[in-house]
């Protein structure tokens, strides 16, 4: 009986946790579905100004086809390109690095890991000032490469750290076992090593991508108009006229950039958790 009681108690405790987590998400969706008049008038909404009585898609058409299109659509592309390129560069470099750390014995191994950890604690804004000056001299200010380079600061140390932890858990003896069984080194790599390493590399890529996707410090300070990413663009939205607030458009844009990421989380929840906590807690 006692266990049954605990079971229901825990199920009950999970309800407020899930509500606390979900309300801000549902709220931003609700706000994105409000028309301009509903945003200004409580009478048109229910549940204490929470949900609109009639759903309006105006905000979505505003950001994809209307007045905010020229700001949002390019920003979306910039975000995708910059984050993908930074993630790709980091994960490729980190894969070699982590493989060496996990499998080979060489001096300086620990120094690399400590450097990666130190760098991931850097106050990113401290890099903005020197880069702001340097990028103006090199004409990299407000360009995509001018963002990709600082984004590597965010993604590379993280990738090295997570991947080394992943690779250290791989049973590498299986590679030799395969070779003993007559596989060539190429076959051993393709059939044994790659399938073992791929999930770790993939998970690391997702986490690195999230980190770059989240950045606001670099993109709001190192871009002006031509290379803005979504978080910076959200901040520079203006209303249809100077007297209207851009609330609806910002929320619609926020929902658009949030959905794909939430889907990724839903699909790969277990792996992401493993990646985030790897290496941190086993000590």
């Amino acid at each position: 009986m006692e266990t049954n009681k605990t079971k229901w108690g825990l199920a009950g405790a999970s309800v407020p946790i899930m509500l606390w987590t979900l309300i801000p998400i549902v709220w931003i969706v609700a706000t994105s579905l409000k028309s301009t008049t509903a945003l200004a008038d409580q009478q048109q909404n229910v549940f204490g100004n929470f949900w609109p009585k009639s759903i309006s898609w105006d905000n979505y058409s505003l950001i994809f086809t209307g007045g905010a299109k020229d700001l949002f659509v390019p920003a979306l592309w910039h975000s995708i390109v910059v984050c993908l390129v930074a993630t790709l560069i980091s994960v490729v470099l980190a894969t070699f690095c982590a493989y060496a750390i996990a499998r080979l014995d060489f001096p300086g191994k620990k120094a690399i890991l400590i450097t990666a950890l130190t760098v991931s604690f850097f106050p990113v804004i401290a890099m903005v000032t020197p880069l702001f000056n340097l990028w103006r001299i090199l004409h990299l200010f407000d360009t995509l490469p001018g963002l990709i380079i600082p984004y590597i600061t965010l993604t590379l140390p993280l990738s090295i750290w997570i991947l080394s932890a992943f690779f250290q858990q791989i049973p590498w003896e299986m590679e030799q076992a395969a070779q003993v069984d007559g596989a060539s080194s190429w076959q051993a790599f393709v059939k044994v090593v790659a399938p073992l390493a791929a999930p770790g590399v993939f998970t690391t890529a997702i986490i690195a991508f999230f980190t770059a996707w989240n950045d606001f410090v670099f993109s709001s300070n190192l871009t002006a108009a031509r290379a803005q990413t979504v978080p910076a663009a959200l901040n520079s939205f203006t209303g249809a006229s100077q007297f209207t607030q851009p609330t609806g458009a910002i929320c619609a844009a926020a929902v658009v950039v949030t959905i794909p990421v939430v889907i990724l989380v839903l699909l790969f929840q277990r792996r992401i958790v493993a990646g985030l906590t790897s290496g941190a807690v086993k000590g």
């Binding site: 946790i17 899930m18 987590t21 979900l22 801000p24 998400i25 709220w27 931003i28 999230f210 996707w213 989240n214 606001f216 979504v230 978080p231 959200l234 901040n235 910002i250 929320c251 926020a254 950039v257 949030t258 990421v261 939430v262 990724l264 989380v265 839903l266 929840q269 277990r270 992401i272 958790v273 985030l276």
Partner: peptide, 18 residues
């Protein structure tokens, strides 16, 4: 476990606006 992970994946700026 999945729901709890959602805020982690939300852009901080989006959370701030919400």
């Amino acid at each position: 476990r999945t729901v709890v992970l959602i805020p982690y994946s939300i852009i901080t700026v989006v959370s701030a606006f919400s």
